[in-house]
Structures are given as structure tokens and as C-alpha cells.
Design a protein around this nucleic acid. Structure first.
Lengths: 208, 208, 208, 208
DNA sequence: AATGAATGAGTCTTCATTCAT
DNA sequence: GATGAATGAAGACTCATTCAT
């Protein structure tokens, strides 16, 4: 019997490794990449710098990511997922569409303000060759829930009859502009500020 | 003697391309840079490729530009100047402000559609570390005339009371989104299309 | 209790492969190394690939071999030992020397044909810096029995008066060439084929 | 008139560069690669070492060769070409076939002895993955003249009826063995030595 | 004994920039 | 002005090896 227990201890010990401290290094690498890219851009951020910032050896990055390209694409997907989650926070189907829209917008705006590196990274990524080379690499959550929500709005006649693929970037453009402005001015943002910006968006696209 | 002439003919033929009017090489370099950056990004466009595309030796680029950085910054200013000129085309002080605004918007939209590389380049540049490292390097024409026009609009109460520095990016975001969408769909753009997009912008920012 | 047994069953299943007879892992490593080097060469075969192919963890290789260099040298010795054993098969002191020579040659040829990876590996090894850096690392069996046999032939006047160290590579060269040719042509090799090749060797070196 | 001469001077100066010291660097790189690979093997010879040995910057190698692989393959072709030229030296169609064969063999043997790095490199190359990956990359001169000569010998009945593709490696194997032996013994090689070795080859393959 | 995540020195390669012509 | 061969610093990536478990 003792030998069985010995086995269990031994073997489970081996499996524990894979189940506890999990992805801490992988996450550290992604976090460092985000911060450094925001500051120095894709090109300006060598792998060695990412490794140093993440307190990891250069080679370690390649245990988790096939290449720098892969690392950046995966960071994009992770960031967009987090973005989608932030937008969906407090979503309440029972509220009127316009309320839900404002909630969405405010969440999005707040995410930008509170996660400047994420916003800067997303904007850089969208305007980089990556976005064109890997159009299929994207957040599923965002596609289904966020874009889906706007498609509903169009289908139900809340918006001008614009293509949803046009609507998304339009909204993004405005909110990014607003967030960037607020951040560069180092202003404290009040709820009124936010609402004012969202109002611009809403006034632009709502069915008059 | 005949052989000398033969040489001259042969060799000068080879040089002909390179001996015509003044700034042709400088322009060729800028044009090639624009096209290649649109396609491959800053990082993906080595100087050697620019030289080849511009039918120029690698070293020649350094007669006209101090460094790659300088080249890109100067390309940015030139492109933004051309952008401003396009926007100001047909400007008529005597028209009502709203008409002039629509004219501005339509010009901007058309410039994007007709100069995709310029649009892509400008968007990339704005979201790159360059923009933050050289904030003073920008088109004077654009600053004075285009931004000035919007500042007038705010001062005269046509727009919501938003900061002009917020207004610009907001408008840009929407028009870029629209242009990108039209371009990616390979659609013929009608005047109605354009007006519809401009209407979104106008509805968003006009004093209600 | 049942769950413990479940665990044991599950986990030991996974380990079964690795817990059977003694040197199985060491052998698996050597076998994998042979196959992979034949295909990709020394340089093209990383330790990680050997580990994967041998169903073993990367670190495990270092329980059995000090370094990659050691692994390859030991593989060379093992292979040469197997080679010598194959050559000596059916050796019968009572037969005439020429008959024994032909038996040797046919055995050698058959070993090559039936163990292509071994042949390719041996040829690669002999022409690599290893052979020069570790001249003392070699098969004792081969040295004593196989080379000894040829030395006898010279001493007893069966061969031209060539140095035995010249004889060996000469014979090897011819048989390797023949084996490679047969293998590359995917031909079925008949006894007549083999004998014909051995005859070339014999005619070359026999005292006329 | 003076201006014409000025042009000629100027322009021809420019072309001179490409016609005088020509390929000296390219050749230096190839020579260094040969020597270093002989000593340390493909893997053991980094590009940086080749550059240093050739008195050239690391990057310069890439002006002449696309990659390390290309460099090695081109070195192989150049070396095999030189090999073929050496073998064909003093070729005299009017002599009897056997005499020409001996001339060929002696030339080949002498080439090996006088160009040990070339011999070692060729043997390494033939037994490396390169040879299998780029079977079409080979010396045309060698294929047509040297292999052609042996094909003639078979067609005209001088040799045993063996496939020419078998004949070549057989001969090579013997001569390489002999050359290696002589070199490793640091012996002065006499004409008798050479003839003795060639006699082994000839006795092996000649129609009895 | 066995694992495989982690390491970091070392490799190939790129590319902005220089300079002799 | 123009050339393009040459440079060499810097980057992405590999892989033999180690070590905590």
C-alpha cells in the first residue's frame, strides 16, 4: 500500500507543476511586450528588451511563442479579448437599446483611458501590415458580442442605414480621438466629459 | 575616334535617366518611400528597396536626406501639405460655413480615396513613435488653414463646444474609416455616399 | 479509494512505456540519433528532436551521455561494433582465405544494404571533424578481427603489397559506392550482383 | 571636345572598378570557406570566422552569396570545376584509352594530394544533406567530360559491364583512400606509388 | 531516473550608413 | 551629384545544457 501512495505523491507532484504557477511567464512576456511596444513601437522593441523587461531569458520567449510575429498577433488577440470583456461589463439585455449603447461607449472609453498601452497598441496594430496579413487572427468574443450588438442596432433601425463594417471604425475613431486627447491633456475625466463624447457618436449615427 | 563616340553613346544612354530635371530624384525617392511603406510598413521597407524602386543608388538617398528618420519625417510633411492643399481646393470664403465644411469634408474624403498610399501612410505615421518624437515637424499649411477653419467654426458657435484638438481627430477617424471601407469593398463611390458619410460627421458635432 | 486506483491506473499507463527493461531508453536514444542524423546530418539534428523521436525528455539524454559529442561518438562505436559483428557472421577458419574474403565482403555489402542509416552515418562520421578529433574512439572488435583479417591476407601474400591502412578504405569505398547505387536505384539485389561487386574489389587487390 | 574626354575618363573610371580587381573578395571568401570547412566542418565554421579569415566584413559575404547554404553549394561547384579541369589536363585524344585512363587517374590523385582541403571538402559535401537537397547543383564540366569519358570506356568494352554511375564512386573511393593515406603518413609520393594505386583501380574494373 | 521549463551564448542575417571612385 | 561595394552593429532565433521538482 505504501508504495501506491509513494507513487501517487510522486506522480501528482509531477502534474502539479503544470497546474499551479501556470502561465505566469507567458503573461509576463505579453505584458512587457504591450508596454514596450506602446513606448517604442513594433520595430523599436527587440526581443532582448522584452526578455529583460519580463525578467526572462531571451530564449524563454520562444517556448511560448513561435516568433516575434506570433507574439504580437497573440498579444493583439488577448488585448482585444480584454477590450471586449471591458465593453460588455454590466451588460443588461432588459435595458433600452440606447442605454445599452451608451453603456457600451462609456465602457469602451473608460477602457481606453485606463489602459493607454492597450489603446495605443491596438491602434498601431490596426494600422500595421499585421492586420492585413492575418485578418483571420482576431478576438472571437469581440466579433460576436460587440460587433453583433451594432448589427442588431442597424437591423432594428436605431442607426442610419450604414454598413456595420463602417460603423465600427467610425465609432472607434471618435472614441480613440477623445481618449487620446484626454490623456495627452492629463485631465481628470468626469462622467459628463464621457457622456459628451458619446453624444457626438450617437448624434452622428442615430436615425434622425 | 569612332570608338570614343560609341562609348559616349553607350554610357550616356545609361545615364540619361539620371540627368534630367533638378529635383526628380528627390521626388522619386519620396514617392517610392510612400508606396513601399504603405505596402510593407516602416520596418518592412529598407533603404535599399527604396533606392531600387526609385531607380537610384543607395548612397544617393543620403544626398537628399540625412537619415531614414529624416526621410520619413519629410515625407510626412510633404504628404500632409498635399493633403491640406487638396482639402482647401475650391475654397470660397463667400459661401456659408456649413457649405464650406461639407466642401472640406468631401475634399478630404476624396483625397483619401484617390491617394490610398498617402492615407495609409498618414495613419501609420500618426500611430507611430515618430509622431511623438517630432511633434513640431508638421505641415504649416495644414495647421493654419485646416485646423484654423475648425477653430473658427467653434468660435462662431457652429459646433458643439468641444476642444478643436478633439474635433480634428474625431473627424479624421470617421472619414478614414469610411474611406478604408469603400476602398476595401472596391466600390464605386457616388456623391451620395460621400455626403452620407459627411452627414454623420456633421450630425455628430454640430450644435444641435 | 477508488479514485486513487483510478489515478494510479491513469498515470502509470502514461509511464508504462518508460518503466520496462533497463537500457531501453539509452538504446532508443541511440536509435533515434542514427535515424535522424542519416536524414538531417549532425548539424541538422538538435537534441530536442532526438528526445522527441525517442519519446524521452530532453534532460534524460544527459543521464546517459555527457554531451551531444559523446552521444555521437558512442553511437559511432556501437554502430561500428554492429558492423563488425555483421561482417564476422558465419566466419569459418577452416575455409580457404579467398572464400573467407568473399564471405567478409558479401556480409559487409549486405549490412550496408540492410542498414542504410548506419552506412550513411558511418560515412558522414568518417568525413567529419569527429573522426579526426577522437581517433582513439573506435570499435575494438572491428580493429582486431576485421582489420586483423586483412593484415593476415597481406602477410600471407594473398594481396598486392599494399599497406593495410590503405586496403581498408579502398575496399570500403568500393562497397559503399555499390551499396549506395543499389539503394538509390531501388533495385532488388541478387547474389550475382553482390558477387560481381566483390569481384571488382578482389581483382583490384589480389596478387596478380 | 575636352568635355567628351572628360566624360570618357570619368565614366570609364567608373567601369574600371567592375573590370579589374573584379572578384577578388568573392574569391577570398570562397578560399577561406574551403580552408575553414576542411578544418572545422560545415557546422563548425561560422560566417563570422569566414569573414575574419577572408579579411572582409561579415555583411560583405552577403553581397556575393544569398546565404551560408548558397555559399557552400557554390563553393562545391567551383571546386568540382577545378577538379574536372585538373583531371582533364594534358588530355590527348590520340593516345590509347588505357593511357588516357591512367592519365586521368594520376591527375585525379595528384589533385587530391595537392589540394587536400578541396578533397576533404568534396568528401564532406558528398556525404552531407546538401548533396541530396541540391542534386542538380553540380559541375557541368565534370559531368560532361569526366563522367563522359568513363561512359565511353564502358561503351567501348574496356571495362567490366558495370553501370557508369557505379564506376565513378568506386574509382573515387579508392583514390580518396589512397590520397588520404599518403597525406596522413606525410609521405613523399613517387610516380611509382601513384601508378600502383591506379593499377588497383584498373585491375578491378578492366574487362579481364 | 525522469522531466521539460528555463537559460543565454552563439549563429545567421539584415540594413542604415559611409566613402572611394 | 551619383554610385554601389563595403561595413559592422544589432536583431531574431536556435539549441546544447542545466536544474528544480
Amino acid at each position: 500500500m505504501a508504495s501506491y501512495l509513494h507513487y501517487i505523491t510522486f506522480l501528482c507532484d509531477r502534474m502539479n507543476v503544470q497546474l499551479n504557477n501556470s502561465n505566469s511567464k507567458r503573461d509576463a512576456i505579453l505584458n512587457s511586450t504591450l508596454i514596450l511596444i506602446k513606448e517604442y513601437g513594433f520595430h523599436g522593441t527587440p526581443m532582448s528588451q522584452i526578455a529583460k523587461h519580463a525578467n526572462v531569458a531571451a530564449g524563454t520567449i520562444y517556448h511560448y511563442f513561435d516568433s516575434k510575429e506570433t507574439l504580437i498577433v497573440e498579444l493583439y488577440i488577448r488585448t482585444k479579448d480584454q477590450f471586449a470583456e471591458a465593453i460588455l461589463q454590466g451588460y443588461d439585455e432588459s435595458k433600452p437599446y440606447k442605454d445599452r449603447f451608451f453603456k457600451f461607449m462609456i465602457n469602451q472609453y473608460n477602457f481606453y483611458i485606463q489602459n493607454e498601452p492597450a489603446m495605443v497598441f491596438l491602434e498601431q496594430y490596426i494600422n500595421s501590415p499585421f492586420a492585413k496579413n492575418f485578418p483571420e487572427k482576431d478576438s472571437i468574443l469581440f466579433k460576436e458580442k460587440v460587433i453583433g450588438f451594432f448589427e442588431d442596432g442597424i437591423a432594428q433601425g436605431y442607426f442610419k442605414n450604414v454598413d456595420p463594417r463602417l460603423l465600427g471604425p467610425t465609432i472607434r475613431g471618435t472614441l480613440v480621438a477623445a481618449a487620446n486627447f484626454r490623456l495627452s491633456e492629463h485631465m481628470i475625466y468626469s462622467d459628463e466629459d464621457i457622456t459628451e463624447v458619446v453624444q457626438i457618436v450617437w448624434d452622428g449615427i442615430k436615425r434622425q
